[in-house]
């Protein structure tokens, strides 16, 4: 067993601001030398979607879900003040102005810092998302994988 401390985050939400909070905490914990896991379930899975369209075989419902959900971190809306997409544009402007990191770069940095990004396979099935549509280098698992990481964790969050 490793002596490193652990941070585990469940990212359930699919909004830009909430995902940004999750990824900032994850990167901060990695800087604390923690072993960090972000478990993506339901709408949080969209943070792991590739920005480009990936042709995969899908049924009607899966196709519809795929179209209705944001394709990747950059396309997510805000949990507050979304204003039909104006909000995210404004937030991205102030992120640039204040030299903060946009969400896609936070995801990239998390991967560089060896944050374990896990996709919940059960909700992938529900939402019709396939491995090919998600980022490379991530892991796949269910509740047992998450509890396995979290049971001897020090920081655990649900966002």
């Amino acid at each position: 067993m490793s002596t490193k401390k652990k941070t585990t985050i469940v990212l359930f939400s699919g909004e830009y601001d909430k995902a940004m909070a999750a990824y900032i905490i994850a990167n901060g914990a990695a800087a604390y030398d923690h072993e960090v896991t972000i478990f993506h379930t339901f709408w949080g899975l969209n943070a792991l979607r590739k920005a480009e369209h990936v042709p995969v075989k899908k049924g009607f419902m899966e196709k519809l879900f795929g179209k209705m959900m944001p394709r990747g971190a950059d396309k997510m809306g805000l949990s507050n003040m979304n204003y039909l997409g104006m909000g995210p544009k404004m937030i991205k402007d102030v992120i640039k102005k204040h030299n903060a990191m946009p969400l896609p770069q936070l995801v990239e940095m998390a991967q560089e810092l060896d944050v374990k990004l896990t996709a919940c396979t059960m909700t992938m099935d529900l939402l019709g998302l396939q491995k090919e549509e998600l980022l490379d280098g991530i892991e796949y698992g269910g509740v047992a994988a998450y509890i396995g990481d979290a049971e001897d964790g020090n920081v655990s969050l649900f966002i």
């Binding site: 901060g28 990695a30 204040h98």
Partner: peptide
């Protein structure tokens, strides 16, 4: 300088 959270701490660790 000019970096926002969480970058200062990430850079410090590195």
């Amino acid at each position: 300088k000019g970096l926002a959270c969480p970058m200062p701490i990430v850079r410090t660790k590195k």
